[in-house]
Simulated assay, not measured.
Amino acid sequence: MKCRGRRLKSCCCCVDLRAGCCFLALFEMLTAVLGFMVGEESRLLLIGRSAYLLHFIGSIFLLMSSFLQIELLVIIYLGTNIFHLIFCTVFLIDYALSCHFCVFESIPSLVTLVSSIYFWMVAFAYLRRLQWEHNPENDD
C-alpha cells in the first residue's frame, strides 16, 4: 500500500523529519522553560504555567520518540501541543490585556506559539512516516 496525499518530507526544507523532531523538541523544551517565567502578575498564571509544564513533558516524549521511534510518544506530544496552543493563547491574551508595558514578554511568547503550529505539523508528518514504516502492508 502506497502512502497517498501530500506529505511533509523534511523539516525546514533540508533536515530529515527524525532529526528535525529531535531539534524541535530541544527548542520546545527551552521555550517551555522560558514560558514559566512569563506573566508574574496574570490572573491566569496557574493555567499558563500548567500548559507550559505539560508541553515540556510532551517535548520530552517527542525527543524520546526521535531516538526510540515509538508512535505513542509522538501522539502524546501532539496532544500536549494542542493543549499548549489553546491555553497559552488564552493566557497571553489575558496577560497582554492586563499589562500595559509587557510587550517585551508577550511578543517572544507569541512567536513561540506561532512556531509551535509548524512544529506540530512536523511532528504529525513524522508520526505518519512512523505509521507507514511500521505498517506490514506497505510495498517497500
Score class of each variant (00 low, 15 high):
Met1Asn: 04
Cys3Leu: 13
Cys3Thr: 11
Arg4Pro: 02
Arg4Thr: 11
Arg4Gln: 11
Arg4Leu: 14
Gly5Gln: 03
Gly5Trp: 08
Leu8Phe: 04
Ser10His: 11
Ser10Asp: 02
Cys13Gln: 11
Cys14Asp: 03
Asp16Gln: 10
Asp16Ser: 12
Leu17Ala: 00
Arg18Asn: 08
Arg18Glu: 09
Arg18Lys: 06
Arg18Trp: 00
Ala19Tyr: 08
Ala19Arg: 06
Gly20Cys: 11
Cys21Glu: 07
Leu24Met: 06
Leu24Pro: 01
Ala25His: 02
Ala25Glu: 01
Leu26Lys: 09
Leu26Tyr: 04
Phe27Met: 06
Glu28Gly: 11
Ala32Thr: 08
Val33Ala: 05
Val33Gln: 08
Leu34Ile: 01
Leu34Ala: 06
Leu34Met: 09
Phe36Val: 01
Val38Asn: 07
Val38Arg: 12
Gly39His: 09
Glu40Asp: 15
Glu40Phe: 14
Arg43Ile: 15
Leu46Ala: 13
Ser50Lys: 14
Ala51Val: 13
Tyr52Met: 15
Leu53Ala: 14
Leu53Phe: 14
Leu54Pro: 12
Leu54Trp: 10
His55Gly: 13
Phe56Pro: 08
Phe56Gln: 06
Ile57Glu: 03
Ile57Trp: 08
Ile60Phe: 15
Phe61Pro: 04
Leu62Lys: 01
Leu63Pro: 05
Met64Gly: 05
Met64Ala: 09
Ser65Asn: 02
Ser66Phe: 01
Ser66Glu: 01
Phe67Met: 08
Leu68Asp: 02
Ile70Phe: 09
Ile70Trp: 10
Glu71Tyr: 08
Glu71Ser: 10
Ile76Lys: 10
Phe83Trp: 09
His84Asp: 10
His84Ala: 10
Ile86Thr: 02
Val90Gln: 00
Val90Ser: 09
Phe91Ala: 00
Phe91Lys: 00
Ile93Thr: 04
Asp94His: 02
Asp94Lys: 04
Leu97Asp: 15
Leu97Thr: 13
Leu97Trp: 12
Leu97Asn: 13
Ser98Lys: 13
Phe101Gln: 14
Phe101Met: 08
Cys102Met: 09
Val103Gln: 13
Phe104Asp: 05
Glu105Gln: 10
Glu105Leu: 00
Ser109Ile: 02
Leu110His: 02
Val111Thr: 03
Leu113Ile: 05
Ser115Cys: 13
Ser116Gly: 12
Ile117Arg: 03
Tyr118Asp: 04
Met121Arg: 01
Met121Asp: 08
Val122Phe: 05
Val122Glu: 05
Ala125Pro: 10
Tyr126Gln: 08
Arg128Thr: 15
Arg128Ile: 13
Arg128Val: 11
Arg129Asp: 12
Arg129Cys: 11
Arg129Thr: 12
Arg129His: 12
Arg129Lys: 14
Leu130Trp: 04
Gln131Gly: 04
Trp132Pro: 01
Glu133Phe: 03
Glu133Ser: 06
His134Gly: 01
His134Glu: 07
His134Asn: 12
Asn135Leu: 06
Asp139Val: 05
Asp139Arg: 11
Asp140Phe: 10
